[in-house]
Amino acid sequence: MEKKFTVLLILLFAASLLFAGGAKEEKGMWQPTKHITVIVPWGAGGSTDQVTRVVAGELEDGLGQKIVIVNQGGASGSVGTKGCLDAPHDGYTWTAGAAADLGAYKVRGLLETTLDDWVLYLNVANVSVISVHPDTPYQDFGDLLDAFKAKPGQIPVATAGQLSAGHNAMVAIQKYTGIKFKHMTYDGGNPAVVATVAGECEVVPQLAVEEADMLAGGKLRALAVLDDKPLELKGYGTIPPVTKWIPDFKPAPNYFGIWVPKDVPKEVIDTFGKLWDDVIKTSQKLKDYAAERGAVMDPAWGEEAKKKAMPYLQIIAWNLHEAGKTVISPEEIGIPKP
């Protein structure tokens, strides 16, 4: 009796899944016959994971199939990205992340791949916000710069590790101002933010999406956004641009998205492109997500997406190169000097 009950529950559940996914017919569109996997090469709950899950939910209706998110973290996202490259290039396995990370794997010697091997579908652009623990004496970004200069290499800065958005932000500031800092690395953007909230580190330069809640909750104080215009954050207020203190600072948006190897069947590429134009560009859920988390909604795909991702990639690839952390010159794989 009890066993039957269990079996019944499972069957009911399975049946509800089958019926939920009734596919819609449309001409020339790719009709996937099983679920699609998106490998998020970072931990669950991080910035890539969150936005990818929102986008996946929006795409499911149009595809008539479930999209399953698999978190395959490790090695700055290169392990999961490699997992996608090794899977059959049939459109059923995708990966996600920041386009600039993908573009810089080869320069860093982590993975033999460049942006040209992929078709990009971008969803939002993220900016870095330099924030400090509220008990620290730094009231504006100028104070912080002075402190960095007065105590070189002693102020702990929390980031999500080498090549993370936070680290790239610090390297860029370093390039303009020549400051030195104590680089503390954590497992992801959120742990880095938490470490600063806990007072272990004084400064965190991670993405606005990762800091939004702590800023709104008064657990962090934002000093500057790495952009040339101020950032309006729902529930916090206006964050001044870094160009107020470093006028010649050249910002570039850090685009996030999902992508697939470019040799998948052409109808896969076209179907996703159509979904991107019809569904993602007008998605209210993505719009709400972006507004709440301090991100900029800016969907694009294909060649247009590549053009949008390039400026930020140029900046980080060349910053890394100048810091001696690359194995080949970005120039060699088609990333011109900014």
């Binding site: 669950a44 709950g45 899950r53 809640d213 909750g217 008064g218 709400d288």
Partner: peptide, 27 residues
């Protein structure tokens, strides 16, 4: 209370709350 997961499954739970528009945290 802080949007900090206490364990690995709780991290996923936190992510799910974010996805559904609930923003746990100090606020």
């Amino acid at each position: 209370s802080l949007a900090i997961p206490g364990s690995a499954p709780a991290a996923v739970l936190l992510a799910a709350m974010f996805i559904h528009g609930i923003r746990p945290g100090p606020l």
